[in-house]
Design a protein around this nucleic acid. Structure first.
Lengths: 242, 242
DNA sequence: CAGTGGTCTAGACCACGGA
DNA sequence: CCGTGGTCTAGACCACTGC
């Protein structure tokens, strides 16, 4: 449904990813070399390299000079919601079929503290929305979000929107693209809010994600603290190289 | 001191990173465009793109078609040790000047459980080292590591090495290169070991990192669980695009 | 030595944003 | 329209691995 023009290297990466996950290549031996793949997809070698590089960064394959390209057996199992380093979509999209509901605890406009203004790259005289929501997955509380957004940028927010997905509103109604995010992940002891709304015991830790999210025009539009139930989430991350 | 051949795009990225951090470019306006930069560094436009792409992925700059390349004000402050998504070096290197010491709690060779063998991509009949260490930074306990390594791959380990840095041994003595890692980060309640060795209270959470680390030849050599004091670490991660 | 992936080039063409 | 970054090419040359 996405009408977006997708570059060749992305289409190829998608196709190869599908093949690999469906067992289209033998795990025990090298995949076809990049020259053959380039011929098959009728692209230049550089473009094929770029497609393969995506899969390398996703941790799906590894490549070795003089040897070939090999599939990396997928590690790690589940049980918790897996928040990949490569996504910044927000819960609603992350879960797909599972029902996500929100309860709005706070929704107001005010002047930001210095720290908030700094992260949003605005002046302290530019008003921001301050929002607190509890997010429920299939009726169970999973996350408390505490979010700041510049009201001049994200206009027309209503509680009706907050009940659903802010991200969808920003992308579909306001027409912005969301391109990048900077996250800090840490653990913390539960505070009163966590205990009250996440149903946490005094001894249940929370995972807090402090995040700045950017639009395609380079402007930060969200500065938020999300406190997750420790038994429901895990954060994965792949690092390559040097 | 590194005798390694460094590609042009890395050298350029290093130089630009230095300039940006030293205030060499005005934050309020676009950096020189890629054509001019390519001329300055006497490389092709593609190579300059690649250098700039590194900085984009590091979250230092952002680029916009039709607009230019801009510096992204560095967000986030400190107080805890910052474990970047882009590193897999191990504590010793991460800290540099700060004194890191280890206390070896366990060091033996045995046959691995099924899960361990699976993550290390070996048979259950291939023996592994099982190692538990407490890592101290300036005399204070920061992390408990529980590590498995194939003994056929990482040969000649001794307690003397474990007292220092395993990674240094692998790279400098065994001559391997460490290229990538897959991490899962989660929070947990402290167990007996955490409370005993990290000096944690019953209510202090820990951050557990489950990790598989790979050598340049694609072989996993480490499967480990590191439990960090929640008040000493933070994990950062930058996500770009699409 | 042959076969692989890694780097780099010079240039074409496209897409987007602002004047 | 111009100036920016994004995609893609065809090919050269290099570096590493294993035979």
């Amino acid at each position: 449904m996405s009408i977006k023009k997708q570059p060749k290297y992305e289409k190829i990466a998608d196709e190869l990813r599908k093949r690999i996950l469906n067992g289209g290549y033998d795990v025990d031996q090298a995949m076809p070399d990049e020259i053959n793949l380039a011929e098959e997809f009728e692209v230049s070698r550089m473009t094929m390299k770029r497609a393969l590089e995506i899969l390398v960064l996703e941790g799906i394959i590894y490549r070795q000079r003089g040897q070939g390209t090999f599939i990396l057996p997928s590690n790690f199992s589940q049980g918790r919601i897996n928040v990949l380093n490569k996504e910044s979509q927000g819960l609603t999209k992350l879960l797909g079929e599972r029902a996500v509901k929100s309860e709005v605890l706070q929704f107001e406009v005010r002047f930001p503290e210095k720290e908030v203004a700094r992260h949003l790259m605005i002046e302290q005289t530019d008003p921001v929305y301050e929002i607190r929501r509890v997010r429920y997955v299939e009726g169970e509380a999973y996350v408390i979000e505490h979010t700041f957004m510049p009201s001049s940028l994200i206009t027309g927010l209503t509680t009706a929107i907050l009940d659903q997905s802010i991200y969808r509103y920003i992308q579909e109604e306001l027409g912005y693209t969301i391109t990048s995010s900077h996250k800090m992940i840490r653990a913390d002891k539960p505070n009163e809010w966590d205990q009250k709304y996440l149903g946490n015991l005094e001894t249940d830790p929370v995972i807090e994600v402090e995040q700045v999210v950017f639009l395609g025009n380079g402007k930060p539009f969200e500065y938020s603290f999300s406190r997750h139930r420790y038994d429901k989430f895990v954060f994965t991350s792949v690092h390559i190289g040097r």
